[in-house]
Design a protein around this nucleic acid. Structure first.
Length: 285
DNA sequence: CTTGTACCCTGACCGC
DNA sequence: TGCGGTCAGGGTACAA
């Protein structure tokens, strides 16, 4: 579920909590999730946290980085040596994580020299963490094939050019990370609703005006998602163990049969590329 | 080249 | 209460 706004919220949380922290130890409980040499980062400190689409790159003081993708259910949670009452309260048990860490879904534990810890939890084990030289990060196939990020290095003109290169349904286009990076199912649905474009239309069929409308809608929903701290629809939580609230502001996502907020006709659900699409068949054309 | 589909995995949910 | 089946979806491998 984590898409650009959730990962950006994570990035900000990691930056706030971990900048300058020195790694004392990394305990890997599930080797399939963690690749690379731990020894090459022990004793180093975090110097920068970047995000590329839905992926994170945590840079260390010795020219190495830890690249990470949390996929569907990964969580980074930071805790001081002794959890304060407030931290425990913020920790949301309904999201599948109890107040005690580590738990059965904790697969990697970072310990810092000041005694604080960072836990990587992942129910479905789809996520990954990789230690590698910083200069090699963008050679990883995942990063090298990533399209531009709609909130940093993408202009409306470039967006339209990329849009014109694909005959796939525009919904699939938005979710294709090779075209643009960071948009997943929730924000793709909401951006198409906001721009009043039918998700079934071919990407290249959009007029210049529609392309501009869609681009602005994509940026708007992503910014709104970040402003609400992301969507905790399934089990996303932030670095401090708290929830986001964008799920309370979905425009169409998950609203099958509910009245369209614009024209009151029922929202319809269809499946595109194996994913649910929610849209208003009357006012999205 | 593009587009579609199965799969990885587990928890939630539904019907019986 | 519990059991089986289905669904959710990011990315990827592979088929068409």
């Amino acid at each position: 579920m984590p898409e650009l706004p959730e990962v950006e919220t994570m990035r900000r949380g990691l930056e706030k909590k971990l900048l300058g922290k020195k790694i004392q130890d990394i305990e890997v409980r599930l080797p399939t999730i963690f690749q690379g040499d731990i020894e090459s980062v022990v004793g180093e400190e975090f110097v920068a946290f970047q995000r590329f689409g839905k992926a994170l790159v945590m840079q260390l003081s010795n020219d190495h980085s830890i690249a990470a993708h949390v996929k569907m259910t990964g969580q980074f949670v930071y805790k001081e040596t002794k959890g304060t009452e407030k931290e425990v309260k913020n920790f949301h048990p309904k999201l599948g994580v109890g107040s005690e860490l580590p738990n059965k879904w904790t697969h990697v534990i970072f310990t810092f020299f000041d005694g604080s810890k960072l836990f990587y939890n992942d129910i479905r084990k789809f996520g990954w963490l990789k230690v590698l030289p910083t200069k090699d990060v963008h050679s990883l196939s995942f990063f090298s094939s990533l399209g531009p990020d709609p909130l940093s290095n993408l202009s409306v003109k470039k967006f339209y050019t990329i849009l014109q290169s694909s005959s796939a349904p525009v919904k699939n286009f938005l979710m294709n990370q090779q075209k643009i990076a960071g948009v997943g199912n929730i924000y793709a649905n909401d951006a198409l609703f906001l721009s009043r474009i039918d998700p079934r239309r071919s990407a290249k069929s959009l007029s210049e005006e529609e392309g501009k409308r869609l681009f602005e809608a994509v940026q708007a929903v992503l910014k709104k998602g970040i402003a609400y701290g992301g969507a905790s629809e399934i089990n996303y939580i932030n670095v401090e163990g708290g929830k986001g609230s964008y799920q309370d502001h979905f425009l169409v996502y998950g609203k099958e049969d509910e009245a369209c907020s614009r024209c009151q006709n029922p929202i319809r659900r269809i499946v595109q590329a194996g994913r649910s699409t929610f849209f208003c068949p009357v006012c999205q054309t």
